[in-house]
Amino acid sequence: MHSEEGHQISKQTLDAADWVILVTSLKQKDFATADVLALYRLRWRIELGFKRLKSLIGLKGPPGTDEQLRQTSCSGPFADYSTA
């Protein structure tokens, strides 16, 4: 099988595509598999939202090396956006 770019897709890659592997510290007796998958999907949507916000405000990475300045610089735009 070939990908769109013409590269050969290995059998191992195709076999792995049938799997969803999540590593969690949640206890199996407390959370059903469907609940863990739902939480993961929600978390992934949040991550994509932050990625989009960072792209919109042009944030490529934390500025400077001062920890307090970095936290203020990173959380400020998101706090402003979330309270608008």
Rank of each mutant, 00 (worst) to 15 (best):
D18I: 07
L37M: 08
D66H: 08
E4M: 13
A16N: 15
E4R: 15
V20N: 01
L42H: 15
T83P: 05
E4W: 11
P77T: 06
H7T: 05
I9C: 01
L53N: 04
I9M: 03
Q12M: 11
D35I: 02
I46A: 11
L42W: 15
Y40H: 12
I21D: 03
E67V: 12
Q8P: 02
A84D: 10
L48Q: 12
L56R: 12
S75G: 04
Q12G: 07
Q8H: 10
S73C: 13
L56H: 08
R45K: 12
T72Y: 09
L42T: 13
S25N: 01
E5D: 15
V23W: 00
T24N: 00
Y81L: 10
Q68G: 04
V20H: 01
I46L: 11
I46Q: 08
E67H: 10
R43Q: 14
L59M: 14
M1V: 14
V36P: 00
R45H: 08
K60N: 12
H2Y: 15
Y40N: 06
E5H: 13
A17H: 05
S55Y: 09
F50P: 04
I9Y: 02
D35K: 08
L59T: 03
T72H: 07
A16Y: 13
L37H: 02
R52I: 09
D35W: 05
S82Y: 10
G64C: 03
P62V: 07
A34G: 08
A34R: 13
I57T: 06
R41S: 03
K54R: 11
H7C: 04
G49V: 11
T13S: 15
S3D: 15
E47T: 05
R52A: 14
G6A: 03
Y81W: 09
G64V: 02
T72E: 11
S3V: 02
S73E: 10
Y81V: 08
S82R: 12
S25K: 00
G64L: 03
G76R: 09
K54A: 12
L39E: 00
P62H: 09
